Simulated assay, not measured.
Amino acid sequence: MNGAGSGVGFSGAVGLVLARPARLLGIEPFFMEFIAGIEERLAERGLSVLLHVVAAQDAEIAAYRRWAERGLVEAVVVVNRTVDDRRLPVLRELGLPAVLVGTGAEGSDGGEGGRPAVPAVRTDDAGPVREALAHLLDLGHRRIARVSGPADLLHTRARTKALVEGCREVGIEPVIVEGDYSDEAGAGLTRTLLNGPEPPTAILYDNDVMAVAGLGAAKELGVAVPEQLSLIAWDDSTMCRLASPPLTTMSVDVHRYGVLVAESVLELVDGREVAERWSPTARCVPRGSTARCPVRSTT
């Protein structure tokens, strides 16, 4: 393939396909910050991001085939790894270089020594879940729920496993419901949880949009946050800080995450060995949406 600055035939683009409803891209801050970080670093080398939003993985694969046939991209960034992911075999078939994003141990893809066979910027999904759980347990919560992302995503499964194992270590079982990162899912699933026979005293969300929507749903039901219900978001966007009360969150430097991905892409297109990198670790930032568990709800 042509490396950056190789002259004739250099496409000047790195491909990124997001298989998700386009409307979510407009309301979820994560990918805008992530792409900004990638663009910032690539721009220093005259490269840009070719972004394509599709509805499903089949359409994503079709996009890769078009790009490879027309020589439109130097490499692709692959996000949101799934169970039985069909994209990597296709990329190998096409000879299209790729950097995986968010791949932990479960996504090592057969590399030697536990390292990915395809270059990756890896993520620790379990450690932050345990940190969030420890925060809630320290506050006395025992009825803990989680509104997750899609269950077929590898990082969703890693977070679920960490939460279930951590809860079992202290003799409790979490309630986990599956969302799709949208505000509708966040609000609807929060209502379902709070209207159940044993409503949780704490809810952990897999993104900020669902958490903010869940906060609104709790208010509509007359459930006071944090006096009756504690909430933790994931990804520390501006909307978390502007919420009332401000949301406790698992904060990630998403912009830095994008820069690290771009560093791996540049090494790849230059034909150099791609260093193993890990994304910035999510850290718990306590704010006004978490407090001690109500005494009456600790049984």
Rank of each mutant, 00 (worst) to 15 (best):
A151E: 13
G186P: 12
P119T: 09
E184P: 08
V175W: 03
G114W: 14
E131C: 09
G102M: 06
S148M: 09
L189T: 01
P197H: 13
L136T: 03
S108K: 14
R122T: 06
R191I: 00
L193K: 03
E106Q: 08
A185F: 02
N207K: 03
R159A: 11
H155N: 15
P119L: 01
A134L: 15
G196S: 15
G104K: 13
G171Y: 03
V209C: 14
E169P: 04
G127R: 15
S108W: 14
V170Q: 10
N195L: 13
D125P: 02
R146S: 13
E184V: 11
D152G: 14
G166Q: 09
V175G: 01
P97R: 02
T103A: 14
G166A: 09
P200Q: 00
S182E: 12
E169W: 07
P150K: 10
T123D: 15
A185G: 10
Y205G: 07
D124A: 08
L136M: 09
A134C: 13
A187F: 08
E173C: 02
G196W: 10
G171C: 06
L193T: 04
L137W: 02
A151M: 05
V164H: 02
G104M: 04
L100H: 00
G149P: 10
A187W: 07
A105M: 08
V129T: 11
R157D: 14
S148C: 12
A202W: 00
Y205N: 07
E112I: 08
L137R: 09
N207D: 12
V129K: 01
A151F: 09
R159C: 14
T190A: 01
A145W: 00
L136F: 09
A98C: 12
H155E: 13
A151W: 01
R146T: 08
L96C: 00
R157F: 03
A151Q: 14
G114E: 12
I172H: 10
A158W: 12
E165W: 05
P97C: 12
R143Q: 15
G149S: 11
P174A: 13
V177K: 02
G166T: 12
R142V: 14
P199I: 12
G196P: 02
L136V: 13
S108F: 09
L204T: 08
D125E: 09
L204E: 05
P97T: 11
N195W: 04
A120G: 15
N207W: 03
A126V: 07
G188T: 09
Y205L: 03
L194T: 02
L163K: 11
S182W: 06
G110V: 10
E106V: 03
R191E: 09
I176Q: 05
E184M: 08
E106C: 06
E131Y: 00
G186M: 04
G113V: 11
S182Y: 13
G104W: 11
R191N: 05
A185P: 08
E184K: 11
S182A: 07
A134V: 14
E198F: 08
A145V: 06
L204F: 01
G114I: 14
V129E: 07
D109P: 02
T156N: 15
E184D: 15
P174E: 04
E169I: 05
P119R: 00
D138P: 05
P200I: 01
A187I: 06
A145I: 05
L96F: 00
G166V: 07
Y181V: 06
